[in-house]
C-alpha cells in the first residue's frame, strides 16, 4: 500500500518540475525548488516507513534544515543582499 503513496508523491514532484523548467522568471523556478524540497522531505519520511528504519527520519530532518537554508540564500541573492 505504501507504494501507491510513494508513486503519487513522485507524480507531484514531476508536476512541479514542469514549472521549474518552464517558469518565465527566476522567482518561479525558486518557488518550484522550494515545493520540490518540501515534497521530498515527505517522500523521505515515507521511505523510512517503507524500509522500516527509524534512522532515515534523521536524514529527512537534516534535509529539511538544509533546504530551508538554501531557499533563504536564494531569496537573499535575488534581493541583491548577499
Amino acid at each position: 500500500m505504501i507504494e501507491v503513496y510513494l508513486f503519487l508523491i513522485a507524480v507531484a514532484v514531476i508536476l512541479s518540475m514542469y514549472r521549474f523548467f518552464r517558469g518565465p522568471t527566476t522567482a518561479d523556478r525558486i518557488v518550484a525548488v522550494d515545493i520540490m524540497t518540501t515534497l521530498t522531505t515527505g517522500l523521505m519520511v515515507l521511505f523510512a516507513l517503507y524500509y522500516r528504519r527509524a534512522i532515515f527520519l534523521d536524514v529527512a530532518l537534516v534535509y529539511a534544515v538544509l533546504a530551508f537554508v538554501g531557499v533563504i540564500a536564494f531569496a537573499r541573492y535575488m534581493e541583491g543582499g548577499l
Partner: peptide, 26 residues
C-alpha cells in the same frame, strides 16, 4: 516525526515570505 512536522510548520512560511519579498524587490 513530530519534530520534523513542527520544524516544517515553522520554517515553510518564513521561506515563502522571504521568497515573495525577493520576487517583489527583483
Amino acid at each position: 516525526t513530530l519534530i520534523v512536522a513542527v520544524f516544517l510548520l515553522l520554517t515553510n512560511p518564513i521561506a515563502a515570505h522571504a521568497l515573495i519579498r525577493a520576487a517583489y524587490k527583483s
